[in-house]
Amino acid sequence: MYSVNLNKKFFLLLLFLGFSIYFGLFAGDKLDFSNENDIAVFFNFRLSRVLLGFFAGTILALGGLSFQTIFQNELASPYTLGIASGASLGAAFFIKFQPAFRIPYFSWEFVGAFSGALLSLIFIKSVFAIKRSDSRFTILLAGIAFNFICTSMIMVLQYIGDITHSFKLARWTMGSLDLLDMEPVLKMFPFFIIVIYVVFSYSRELDIMLYGNELAHTKGVDVAKIENRFFILISIAVGAVVSICGPIGFIGLMVPHILRLVFGYKHNILGIASIIGGGAFLVFCDALSRSLFSTNQIPVGIVTSLLGATFFLYMLLKK
């Protein structure tokens, strides 16, 4: 049913990826490749930014794809479930109250985002356990409530902080792919691989779970075990994205939804499409955020949120 135009669809998606990468690498000031400084700018700023955007976009899209399937709800994503907000609160807490000592490899924002993501996961799981037999919309509403709690707490941190911390927090909560070298890219890479691994390992199970837990149970799928693995691994990976890039909203909501309309229900195909589409979309939005104003760039989180919120409204109205 879906194979007729599959190659054509993937070709178009790859074309979008190619365009996004080109746009990401060459948007902004023109570079002179005979100049060593410009070559350094190309590798340290532009290439690393494109790679970071690609990895982060993929993690968010695959996270959204799997959560939408697990919750059998098109509005589920790491952002709407409150995981990204929990991670943001954790990271914001450590930006404000950074301990004096350092830990190897991980920054305190990293630790905070992980802890926050896990905290939100525990919150969601608790609601899920209490309201198991109820509509999954309850979980989403709980996620939205948790979002508000986290946003309020971040605002408290901003309010009680000094001007430097407040500015850093305000800037960080807008979500950005600003970086100075390849280090964040290398830190993100293992999480990129983990998310791809988990989605493709369980693609057949996700296919069945899309049609309801009862059906999945009776076909032999251990739904609870798979849900737990996804919750933990996706939350950790989203925590990594948030700790490095800040909260970048709506990619996990929008990209899987559009791709499902185009590519059908099979998660091995959707997984590949989400890697290309999610990565390409964030790289594109980042390049757009750098090109919209000639004098200054705006954080990419603003661009994705503007596009995503409009899309969210469209979906609500369509429902």
């Binding site: 049913m1 059998q72 296919d207 069945i208 899309l210 049609y211 309801g212 009862e214 059906l215 149970h217 009776t218 076909k219 032999g220 799928v221 251990d222 739904v223 499902r260 059908g264 229900y265 099979k266």
Partner: peptide, 29 residues
């Protein structure tokens, strides 16, 4: 669950099909 599925099959009263799927793909589950 896998062991149980080879011994026992439960067909619920209602199954909601919200997404397009061919009969073959569904039976493949």
């Amino acid at each position: 669950f896998r062991e149980l599925a080879t011994i026992l099959c439960y067909i619920p009263q209602k199954t909601f099909i919200n997404y397009d799927i061919s009969v073959r793909d569904f039976l493949f589950f």
